[in-house]
Amino acid sequence: MDHLLPKSLGQASFDAGIAPALTVAAGGGERIGFETDDAVYAQLHERGSLDKVTATINPVTGPLYVEGAEPGDALQVTVHEIHLKDHGWSVSLPGAGALADRMGERSFTRRIPVGERVQLTERIDTAPRPMIGCIGTAPATGTGSTIMPSFASGGNMDLTDVAPGATVYLPVLVPGALLSIGDIHAVMARGESSFVAIEAEGVAVVSVDVVKSMPLRAPRVETPGEWCFIGIGDPVQESIKRGYEDMFDFLVDDRGFTREDAYVVMSALAHSELGGPTGSGEPDPLHPFTAVGAVTVHRLPKSVLG
């Protein structure tokens, strides 16, 4: 690792007005560690109520300025490693997640040991599968939320695929891109029923490059076996439509498929699912979790590309 951005650089938003914490050259191969922060969960565990918490909710570390990144390009972020601390948190917040009606109005927290295994309960453990929940570049105007909604150049998408071995392509909307990363999970089920999963402090180690003249309207993730096209929209039907359209355009415009061939292949082999929630109209800092729409993930097996 060539650089470490400590969690003390945590920010409450993605914002082009925030001064860069570090500048690197595109494609230089430097590995940058982004340390993330889970102080909000520790405070909630100690104090028992979200309205007594003073720590920033879901901060992102950064931003990183990438020389050569200009609007209309894509920032290529390769995730090399994610180092976890020795514990994480499972949390239930009143009104949050699909099980809010079952969990009731009391906050619930559990400190989860993390090592070679993640100890969920006394008898159930699982292998760590660390991933980055919140990743993005700065919006051209205004600020991007670290909670919700997700936005064109990223945010709190909670994608299990943003893990070691993956490459994330993010729209560049401002000079330098201004990359920020936060919200590491030790393990998370796709869809994230609780809206928090097993949150854990850690260090995500990435390198960056720029793909010139690659205008994207939403992030894209490449894994060893798949291309994942991310739909961001409201309502959820719009998110699904946009993700499918981006996959279709990739096959036709970038890979030379006929429209008919792309249509047939997608209907047979392109699986889709929910990512994290897209957002609410005007999130209340204490009750910010009424989701509108959703982040959707549309999976194209690389095997169809030859």
Rank of each mutant, 00 (worst) to 15 (best):
M1A: 14
P6V: 06
L9S: 12
G10W: 09
A16Q: 14
I18H: 13
L22S: 04
L22P: 06
T23S: 14
A25P: 00
G28W: 05
R31I: 12
I32Y: 06
V40M: 14
L44G: 07
H45S: 12
E46W: 00
E46K: 12
G48T: 06
G48H: 08
L50G: 11
L50I: 15
K52Y: 11
K52W: 09
T54A: 12
T56M: 15
V60I: 15
L64E: 08
L64V: 09
Y65G: 04
Y65N: 08
A69M: 09
A69L: 10
E70G: 10
P71A: 07
G72Y: 09
Q76A: 15
T78F: 09
V79F: 03
H83G: 08
D86R: 11
S90L: 13
S92R: 12
P94M: 06
G97D: 07
R102M: 10
R102K: 13
G104D: 11
R106L: 11
R106E: 14
F108N: 04
R110Q: 14
I112V: 14
I112R: 03
V114T: 05
E116I: 04
R117M: 11
R117L: 09
V118A: 02
L120I: 07
L120E: 02
T121C: 02
I124H: 04
I124P: 00
I132D: 03
G133T: 05
I135R: 01
G136N: 01
S150Y: 01
A152Q: 10
S153D: 01
M157Y: 01
M157Q: 03
D158V: 02
L159H: 02
L159K: 02
L159S: 01
A163Q: 03
G165A: 09
A166Y: 02
L170E: 07
P171I: 03
G176W: 07
V187K: 01
R190Y: 02
G191Q: 04
F195K: 02
V196S: 07
A197K: 01
I198T: 15
E199N: 05
E199W: 01
E201A: 15
G202S: 04
G202A: 04
V203N: 07
V205W: 12
V205M: 07
S207E: 13
D209G: 14
V211A: 15
S213A: 15
L216M: 14
R217E: 13
R217W: 09
R220L: 15
T223N: 02
P224S: 05
P224K: 02
E226P: 03
E226I: 00
G233M: 03
V236T: 11
Q237W: 05
E238Y: 08
K241Y: 13
D246E: 14
F248D: 07
D253Y: 11
D254E: 14
T258S: 15
D261K: 15
D261V: 08
A262Q: 10
Y263S: 11
S267L: 03
A268E: 13
A268P: 00
A270V: 06
H271P: 00
S272Y: 06
G276N: 11
G276P: 12
P277V: 02
S280Q: 13
E282C: 07
P283L: 02
L286I: 10
L286H: 06
H287D: 08
A291K: 03
G293I: 08
A294R: 14
V295G: 00
R299I: 01
L300M: 13
P301A: 12
K302G: 06
S303H: 03
L305F: 09
